[in-house]
Write a protein that binds this DNA or RNA. Structure first.
Lengths: 324, 324
DNA sequence: CTGTTAGCGCTTTCAT
DNA sequence: ATGAAAGCGCTAACAG
């Protein structure tokens, strides 16, 4: 079943079928209806490899994430998809699992014309160069030195404000739980800046810079810290999952939140509302980030020589019970 | 940059380039190396529309989910992807957002040869017929009456066992919080069966059959039930998010878990471990479900006339503090 | 083992 | 507004 079959079946040239299938406007309405009727009758669907071999655009963008098990991405993906629909684009999600080989495969998929471009959500920095010849945009985990199109928040500023808030509600000995990924390092920089500004000496024993988004790890580290007899009255966690682990450990250890220890998380994930003590957290405007990323990529495919855009989206501190 | 450019550049026929690019074994090792060198030098990538126009297989499967924000799917997707790698297949994830129009688009994508087949994770029943002419398998949310390839647990049995466990630990007045989707209805059927078997009369005021996976709803319903003065000493929630809402509401209402009220959830999501009281829950073997789904689809693409397989995977009750 | 050739299904000139 | 015909990049069949 191909365009020629339809052509013979209804006695119209393949070119006209093609025009109808692509919604070109230089087709007589009566002819259009006649073609559509035949297409429906035969159940014909345009063969995409055939079309894409000729046509430039696939009307598909890929989104690349580490893994969909990070709930942070779901809303960004959704907002990208919403924008895509408006522009008659479709989205396919690809998981990298942090494998460079897979990043390479996705870059090649664009070069191979499987899709028009790709949005890299919090990509591994080493992988970015693979995409230099294809339309792409990086959303999240960007560095100040990036020269490609980017969308991100100001993580250092966000970390600074979160810790400033902790200090404002009375915390002086503040634990920092972060990751050794780009934004984690930026947030930790903000943490140190806020301490310095308040005249609080940095205590290395309160910094855990190598934790990932792991509930059990957050729980364990705080349990150990209490057991070690290290005094602290505030926690800045670089994400809500760590913060939840910390809070549950505090409660299990007989501490009250926020009376004894104030806690701030990051990302405003559902966990921050589901925690026994709802968590004060930094919200990244995920909807706006996704929309902006789509728009930049869309423009990029129209004009590949456009200057790189570096968009910084404003974040927001959401105050909940864990600090007040 | 196409296969002919490479051909001219290194003075070898396009057919041989093609053979090398596809890892055919009827190529002289020296020739293979010579071609590879030229390909690397030129940065040539096979044009996929061109290849797929001739070749039958895209080596791509789609996975369709409602939305990636449901953490239940992440591990299934991961295990599918792991299997895919073994068979040199690639996966693209598509979100339906429950829109029939989008299901239709995904079915057409297969017909249009964008991909070889599709795994439908917990699809809308009305959408399944769209896929009748393409290789597909349904994983989750299946009905006893389905005649296509399916992979699922026995939800009625799982609900029955969960409630039997509640009764076993002393609960008599058991709330049931479920959804009006297929597996929710099956689990509620299991709930009623367990009550009947224990000689406990079904109390309609304890059944909330229309709740979705919404933390706030779970919290609210239990808060209201306590306010209404309705006595209960057990809760069977059809998923862990509802269970978490319920437990937090109980604690806020001054009840002890499990001493006053025992709670069982469903799915063994991360929430069930992160809750203030770790939750007893029914684990669906997601890894096995994903692997099986891949395997069935893979076989299906090899032999489209094979009989439909209906695989039922065994579940497991994970006992945690919320019931003992 | 390698080359030649035809043609996959579509869209796009170019005619009319 | 419609049709005829060329050709996108690749692989399979055939030849050698």
């Amino acid at each position: 079943m191909n365009i020629n079959d339809v052509s013979k079946h209804i006695g119209v040239s393949p070119a006209t079928i093609s025009r109808v299938m692509n919604n070109y406007d230089n087709v007589n309405p009566a002819m259009r209806e006649r073609v559509m009727a035949g297409v429906r009758e035969l159940g014909y669907v345009t063969n995409l490899p055939g079309r894409n071999l000729r046509a430039v655009s696939t009307k598909i963008f890929l989104i690349c994430v580490h893994s969909i098990d990070n709930p942070f991405y779901a809303e960004i993906v959704r907002s990208i998809e919403q924008e895509a629909i408006k522009h008659d684009y479709n989205i396919m999600i690809c998981e990298s699992y942090l494998s460079l080989k897979r990043y390479r495969y996705f870059a090649d998929s664009i070069k191979a014309k499987r899709a028009d471009g790709i949005i890299l959500l919090s990509p591994r920095e080493e992988a970015i160069e693979y995409f230099k010849d294809v339309p792409f945009v990086v959303c999240g985990e960007t560095g100040e030195d990036y020269t490609c199109d980017t969308v991100d928040i100001d993580s250092e500023k966000a970390g600074y404000e979160a810790v400033k808030h902790l200090i404002g509600v009375g915390a002086r000995k503040i634990v920092c739980m972060g990751g050794n990924y780009k934004s984690g390092i930026q947030r930790i920089r903000g943490y140190k800046k806020a301490l310095a500004e308040a005249g609080i000496a940095f205590n290395e024993r309160l910094l855990f810079g190598e934790l990932f988004n792991d509930y059990e790890e957050g729980y364990k580290k705080i349990t150990e810290l209490m057991a070690a007899g290290e005094a602290f009255d505030g926690i800045f966690a670089c994400n809500d999952i760590l913060a939840t682990g910390a809070i549950n450990a505090l409660i299990a250890g007989g501490k009250r939140v926020p009376d004894d220890v104030r806690v701030v998380g990051f990302d405003d994930l559902i966990f921050s509302r589901m925690c026994a003590v709802p968590i004060t957290t930094v919200r990244q405007p995920r909807k706006e980030m996704g929309e902006t990323a789509f728009e930049i990529l869309f423009e990029k495919t129209k004009n590949r020589d456009a200057d790189a855009r570096r968009v910084v989206i404003g974040h927001e501190l959401i105050i909940r019970k864990s600090t007040v």
